[in-house]
Amino acid sequence: MNKTQKRILVYCATGLQGQAVASRLLLKEDFSIRLLVRNPEKAEALQRAGAEIFCGDLGEASSLVSANDGVDRVFLQLPLDFTPAVVDYAINAIDAAKEAGVSLLVLNTSVIVPSEKTGVKAIDLKYDIEHYLKRSSLPYIILRPTFYMENLAAPWSVPSIQEKSTVAYPIPADFPASWIGVEDLASYVVEALKKTELAGSEFNIGGPEVLTGKDIAERFSQALRREIDYYPIPLDTFEEQINAGIGEPIGTEIAALYGWFVSQPQSPVALSLNAVLEKLPVQLTPMSEWINQQDCFK
């Protein structure tokens, strides 16, 4: 690392979102990247690309103190966990960053978090994490994304599109959302990590289009050049599918999350991004373009 580079610590770097962020950061000559991983074998490609690998565990505070040594900025993302342990993980990471004197921590909540608790674990746990971060006196930027386009390319989504020509998702056909691609999330994160002057900011982030289920079906029809329909999966059916595929209670908690979103008087994930893009100027990917980039639909 040369003297002008800033060392960035990236958490959960072997997951889909973390990998996208790490890969984007590796293209920036002014950043040196350290990845906190539990299994270094999963990070071999990123290591070959120039990332420093640090073996640690979010549940072991001492390992995080060591991981933050010499770090200037932090990207914090947390594992898919709907128990209070995920709050403890975040506290360990925030405390370690504060002890190291980092100049900025960028938190990806992976979900829109409202100003009050909702009774939904997927939201309220992140609310508690945000509250702790804001009280920590650590310089921070919070990014709250909407729905990931990658959910439509997940193993439980692709067969319906391929075999039944139907996009099936657990929201009503007329529910609007600013869907975001993981690569666009990475663009937001990298831009935020560059902007220490924005410390104390919170941004709800999404993609360039507000789309309903019917709009999504149209985008798939155009991209795949065949008629694609949209089917709103009942929440109880979706819950059973996800629990069967990933394990309880993940499906139960994600179903509760979608149930909260669609029950609101106005969609919390239908965003106007003009003010956000003025401060975090990134190029966003329309859904049609994203579909054409996915090998699973070819």
Rank of each mutant, 00 (worst) to 15 (best):
S201G: 07
E202S: 14
F203S: 10
F203C: 07
N204K: 14
N204E: 12
G206L: 02
G206P: 03
G206E: 01
G207K: 00
P208I: 01
P208V: 01
P208H: 01
P208G: 02
E209F: 01
V210F: 00
V210S: 03
V210T: 13
V210E: 00
L211W: 02
L211T: 02
L211E: 01
L211P: 01
T212S: 13
T212R: 03
T212W: 03
G213D: 01
G213I: 04
K214E: 12
K214F: 04
K214T: 13
D215E: 05
D215C: 08
I216P: 02
I216A: 04
I216C: 04
A217Y: 03
A217L: 07
A217C: 07
E218V: 12
E218H: 10
R219W: 00
F220V: 07
F220P: 05
F220G: 07
S221L: 08
S221D: 04
S221H: 07
S221V: 10
Q222M: 07
Q222Y: 11
A223L: 05
L224H: 06
R225Q: 15
R225N: 15
E227K: 14
I228W: 08
D229H: 13
D229R: 14
D229Y: 09
Y230W: 11
Y230M: 08
Y231S: 11
Y231G: 01
P232E: 03
P234I: 09
P234H: 08
P234C: 09
P234R: 03
L235F: 06
L235E: 08
L235C: 07
T237G: 01
T237Q: 12
T237W: 04
F238Y: 15
F238V: 05
E239S: 12
E239V: 03
E240G: 02
E240D: 10
Q241I: 15
Q241H: 04
Q241A: 15
N243A: 10
N243D: 15
N243S: 10
A244T: 13
A244M: 10
I246D: 02
I246W: 12
G247N: 07
